[in-house]
Structure formats: C-alpha cells, structure tokens
Design a protein around this nucleic acid. Structure first.
Length: 175
DNA sequence: ACGATGATGAAC
DNA sequence: TTCATCATCGTA
C-alpha cells in the first residue's frame, strides 16, 4: 500500500513534519515518462521569520512569498549560481516554514539530488502531486525514533544562535 | 582550500 | 544600478 502525502500532512509545524519525512519516498516523473524514486534520509527545518537561517527572516520578498503559502507546495531556489535546493513548504497559510530535502539513500547532497532529478525553479510554487511531476509517497517504511539523529543545520553559520539549533534530521540505516 | 557561477535583496 | 552574499560541490 502506497499513499501520496496529502496537503494536510504538510500543514503542520515544520519541526514535526521534518522528522516524519525521513524514510518517505521522493517520486519524480521526467518528461520522457521515466519515474525515479528515492528514499529521503536527510532533511532540515526552516521555521518562520524569527529563524535567522530561514530565508523568510527578512520578511516576504519575491523569493520567499511561496513560503507563506499553506503547506504542500515546493519551494525551489538557486544557490551559489549553480545548485537548486528543494524544499517542501509546511505549516498554515501566512506562517513561512519549509523542509529542505538534503539527501536520499541513493543520492547524497541537496545540489546533487536536484541535478539527478532534473529539478529547477520551474517547480517553484507547484503542488507536491502527480500533476507537477514531483511528490512524496509513504510506503510504510519504518524509521524508529531511536535511529533519528538531530544536528545543527549545514551551511548556515551566519545565523548566530539559530545556526546551532538542532534542526537537521538524519537517520542511520539499520544498526 | 578554493573557485565556479548567477539570482537575490538591500543599499545607493 | 551596483554590490555583497549565498541552505554547494568538484577538484586540488
């Protein structure tokens, strides 16, 4: 039994949604009809305007407006002029938060992941459903709470005390 | 350890 | 309109 994660799954506080995405399947359909499925094993939470590592800490701008949408849409942006970052927007309308999908069992690294799946800003603000060609499925793979490790987020040293918060979630395979 | 590479946002 | 910055990665 496979369920596509619905909008209601994402319309919850980001710190709750982020660890729940571990073990879920990221599914991408390419224009040529090929389907790619990767199991998410590394994510980070970005939590509102107060979070100095979150792009929305500078308020609503052209780029961050999508983070204020109700959960369930993609937030994709280009960083370092080269790499697209894939986030799923979470929470209620008006509260900017999102989960950065940093890695899967098959492909490590947020930049390598989007390159592998042909993800770019065309997907920004699109819903996570079959129509957009990018969504997340639950195949009831079990990730025990004990296997989940929390660490500070990567690459946000500029964010002061917020850089130290354990908003990165990874799970260690088996063991 | 460092350069590639371009959109973004804030300042001017 | 300029300019510093940046949720990375491959090469050295």
């Amino acid at each position: 039994m496979i369920d596509i994660l619905s909008q209601s799954f994402f319309r919850c506080p980001v710190l709750r949604v982020a660890p729940e995405l571990l073990g879920k399947i990221l599914v991408r359909t390419l224009p040529n009809g090929k389907v790619l499925k990767l199991r998410i094993n590394e994510v980070e939470a970005y939590d509102g305007e107060k979070d100095l590592a979150c792009h929305a800490s500078r308020g609503k701008t052209e780029r961050t407006v999508v983070m204020y949408e109700p959960g369930g849409v993609w937030y994709v942006y280009l960083v370092y002029g080269m790499y697209h970052m894939l986030n799923i927007v979470t929470g209620a309308a008006g509260y900017p938060s999102a989960v950065l999908i940093r890695g899967t069992e098959e492909v490590s690294g947020p930049g390598r992941l989007t390159k592998h799946l042909s993800i770019d800003t065309q997907l920004n603000a699109k819903k996570a459903d079959k129509q957009s060609g990018l969504w997340i499925e639950d195949d009831w793979y079990v990730v025990s709470a004990r296997a989940i490790q929390r660490t500070p987020r990567i690459g946000v040293d500029y964010a002061g005390t917020w850089a130290k918060k354990p908003y990165r979630f990874v799970y260690r395979k088996n063991k």
